[in-house]
């Protein structure tokens, strides 16, 4: 029996230990390690300690890219919030059955790949794409609008791809609000805005932060959206890292930017925990 127990424990614990050490901890430590090494002019890594990669991050060029990434990620988060609140509230006003159907529909686009959906957007947003054609044909505009190959196009792509990550946690936190409270507020003559500020917002705060976290951090890294809808002339952190590894052959610098990105994520997580967010909620969906 004792032996049996040991095997049992072994089977149930060893996989997760191996997994977390070899596929999570080691890769990240390795990134951390090479971020302090030098690289030679054509991409080899030299085993010499240096802080140069971290100093390089603060060059004007890169600071600009950082600022742009943050603005895009922040804007994306903000727009997602603006869309998600009315949406989840509208959903929550429907009966249970319809709520379920609607929330499943939100997930349907996800079953096609996000890249494929970005391709759909290129067909829509091009200079002579579907949207401009329609607007031109109905004489609403005389000149085609510049809808992609600029920041506007990137933002559309980002909001589109990340919107469900805001909607889902927000929806589950809206469900926790008890109907009688809302009714009471209504009976006491609270305006819509007051109800929102005093009841809905505080109740949904954990969902809001959860969603913001799940929107903001990926938005810093989605290089393919920027590539496709930005026309290769706009860079965010994700493109910068990708280029260091896949074209500029400078792994240590790419690693340093990644460490920086991990640092930002950690700070956000710290804040999230501070306001009482549960880590398990982030992966629940």
């Amino acid at each position: 029996m004792k032996f049996d127990n040991k095997i049992f424990k072994f089977i149930f614990i060893v996989p997760v230990i191996i997994y977390s050490v070899f596929l999570i901890a080691l890769p990240l430590l390795y990134i951390f390690w090479i971020s302090f090494l030098k690289n030679d002019s054509y991409g080899g890594i030299i085993n010499v300690f240096t802080l140069q990669n971290y100093i390089d991050i603060f060059a004007d060029v890169y600071i600009k890219i950082f600022l742009r990434s943050f603005l895009i990620a922040l804007g994306t988060t903000f727009i997602c919030i603006l869309i998600s609140y009315p949406f989840v509230l509208a959903v929550s006003h429907k009966n249970k059955k319809i709520q379920q159907i609607l929330m499943t529909l939100v997930m349907v686009p996800f079953l096609t790949n996000s890249l494929i959906r970005m391709y759909g957007f290129t067909v829509l947003l091009r200079k002579y794409g579907v949207i401009n054609q329609i607007l031109l044909n109905t004489s609403l505009i005389n000149e085609p609008l510049e809808l992609m190959y600029n920041t506007f196009g990137i933002m559309i792509g980002m909001v589109y791809t990340l919107l469900p990550f805001m909607i889902l946690p927000l929806y589950s936190s809206v469900l926790t609000i008890e109907k009688p409270i809302l009714e009471a507020a209504n009976d006491l003559g609270a305006s819509k805005w007051q109800t929102f500020k005093k009841i809905i917002l505080p109740q949904t705060l954990p969902g809001l932060f959860n969603g913001s976290l799940m929107v903001f951090t990926p938005a810093l890294g989605y290089f393919f959206i920027v590539d496709i809808l930005g026309g290769g002339k706009i860079m965010i952190l994700g493109n910068l890292i990708k280029n260091q590894f896949l074209t500029a052959r400078n792994w240590p610098f790419g690693a340093a930017i990644s460490v920086f990105l991990i640092l930002i994520t950690s700070i956000l997580i710290w804040g999230y925990k501070k306001i009482g967010g549960k880590m398990d909620d982030l992966g629940g969906m």
Partner: peptide
């Protein structure tokens, strides 16, 4: 060419 070099060396 740079992407090729990186891909082969990676």
């Amino acid at each position: 060419n740079e992407e090729l070099l990186a891909k082969v060396s990676n």
